[in-house]
Amino acid sequence: MHITLNLSSGAFAGEIKDISGANVFDCYQCGKCAAGCTVGGYIDDTPTKVIRFIQLNQRDKALDSRTPFLCAACNTCSERCPMEIDVAKIMESVRILALKEKRKPERDVAVFSELFLGSVKTTGRLFELGLTAGFNLMSGQPVKDAELGARLFRKGKIAIKPAMSGNKNVKQIFDKSEAVSGSSSKEEKAEH
């Protein structure tokens, strides 16, 4: 691995700070987040390393890392960070940026989120069966968890029809969130 450092070294850290509020330069790379990470055994870069990439302005390396996508958002890292850095929020910010730029280092997780939110946007509530079936189709594993599904069905735990919230505001919340999120810029934030 090779890294070339240049003048604009704080730029990416600034982007992350705008979204998460966290200053990555507070991190002294102690590794406590890596040590306790729930998915530590499955990620390519430890959270510590992702933060290091941000400190060194390595935008691509951070945004293409699978780690922020595999993050279970369990907050163990943030809870125990000796420098009180919200590590989970930094992971979340990297993921948001990666999704915005259509990077999907961990496609399945991205697809799951998309389907989940799609379901909520349509009816206001999550339709679990639709989500699972949709995911299996999109991820090319149509019979995944089929046996489990059948058992749940027998237990009466699977709703066949989507639940309706009857709330007419949902679509607006999604659309406006999308719009606002796209428009967020540093200057706008600085004003507030």
Binding site: G124, S165, N167, V170, I173, E178
Partner: peptide, 22 residues
């Protein structure tokens, strides 16, 4: 009445505003 989904993890890890607004 008319409660809606909180968005769970997918919302706040995709779009911060959505993750709070829902």
């Amino acid at each position: 009445d008319k409660w809606i989904c909180c968005g769970a993890t997918p919302a706040h890890t995709t779009n911060q505003e959505l993750g709070i607004a829902l």
